[in-house]
């Protein structure tokens, strides 16, 4: 290989010693021992590209490149912006922490952030609690029709996101399905105004929006659960409830974590649902961020809010993951 290459391409066979002007002919005898020689940058790059690691990097470089461009790029722009300031339409690129001070200390943003976290964590748990039995049922009793069941579950999600939110407006609204229904039944005499335009409406709507995304990872982890473990637990004396708590639940914790994260992380940043069904009490941090990037035209503050939210959500998510991992050790 080596000698073949050097005859074909003299550049590969000739190695400089590192001293300019002094060029040595490499011994072309393949049996001769290869002496350690200083290599040029070019030689070592081509060597690296032929190595196992080099080939690996080469193979993943196109996707790596666009992943960098598409994922890291925007984040860099946001992070950079968050340290700048804006005066009407001009961006001042001198470093400042003023945006973060505002984002983290001004009561309005703090409240919005806390509310957003509360809503997203609640939505995530509500969604998982509602989705788990469905996933469990499909996995354990779906039989031959598992595929069909999953298909049916995803059907509502073929309609647009806005459509689903608006249909909740129809259900929860002042003259909505729920109110008129309850009035017909005589449960209430005049429509309840507490159904919509508040935090609860946001939670209900979001939980419904994300249900399918929670069901799928839960279903997958339940499918992976070895049924003979449940038989063994039954054999050792556990009834259905204990079997669930001691075997099914701990072994599906990865699915639960995945479902929680899949729901929680995007819901923090949702601004359409709070806008449509949240009213004034249901405003979330993403609405504030949107305003900064839009009408208020303060990109740096918007960016600082976004970055702060991102970091705090990551911390909360990490805490939840650790707590669930601890729970897994407790359930024996």
């Amino acid at each position: 290989m080596r000698s073949f290459r050097s005859q074909q391409d003299p550049e590969c066979g000739i190695v400089t010693t590192g001293i300019p002007g002094q060029i040595e002919e490499l011994n072309l005898d393949p049996s001769a021992p290869i002496l350690p020689v200083q290599r040029t940058g070019r030689e070592s790059i081509s060597r690296f590209l032929r190595s196992e690691t080099g080939k690996g990097w080469l193979t993943i470089s196109p996707p790596l490149l666009y992943a960098m461009l598409l994922l890291i790029g925007p984040i860099i722009v946001i992070v950079a912006n968050s340290f700048w300031s804006q005066d009407y339409l001009t961006i001042d690129r001198t470093f400042t922490l003023e945006n973060y001070r505002a984002a983290l200390t001004e009561p309005i943003y703090r409240d919005l952030l806390m509310r957003s976290l509360f809503i997203s964590v609640t939505v995530a748990f509500v969604t998982v609690v509602l989705a788990y039995p469905i996933a469990w049922f499909v996995s354990f009793y779906g039989g031959r029709y598992k595929g069909l069941w999953l298909f049916i579950i995803t059907v509502p999600f073929w309609s647009g996101y806005l459509l689903r939110i608006l249909s909740w407006k129809v259900i929860l609204g002042y003259k909505g399905v729920l109110n008129t229904g309850l009035m017909h039944l005589g449960v209430i005499t005049e429509p309840l105004s507490s159904l919509i335009y508040n935090v609860n409406a946001v939670i209900i709507t979001l939980a419904h929006s994300w249900a399918a995304f929670a069901i799928l990872p839960l279903f997958v982890s339940l499918e992976k659960l070895d049924r003979s473990l449940l038989e063994a637990a039954a054999d050792l004396g556990d009834g259905p409830v204990r079997r669930f708590l001691r075997i099914t639940l701990p072994l599906t914790i990865p699915g639960i974590i995945a479902a929680l994260m899949i729901v929680m992380i995007p819901t923090v940043g949702d601004y359409v649902t709070p806008k449509l069904v949240g009213g004034k009490d249901g405003v979330m941090i993403a609405n504030a961020i949107q305003v900064q990037f839009g009408r208020a035209s303060n990109w740096p503050l918007g960016a600082a809010l976004a970055v702060s939210t991102m970091i705090i959500v990551s911390l909360v998510a990490g805490t939840i993951v650790l707590a669930l991992a601890g729970l897994k050790r407790l359930l024996k």
């Binding site: 070895d226 003979s228 473990l229 038989e231 063994a232 637990a233 054999d235 075997i247």
Partner: peptide
């Protein structure tokens, strides 16, 4: 059990 069914 023939498949052991050890709790992982």
């Amino acid at each position: 059990f023939q498949s052991y069914a050890i709790f992982p």
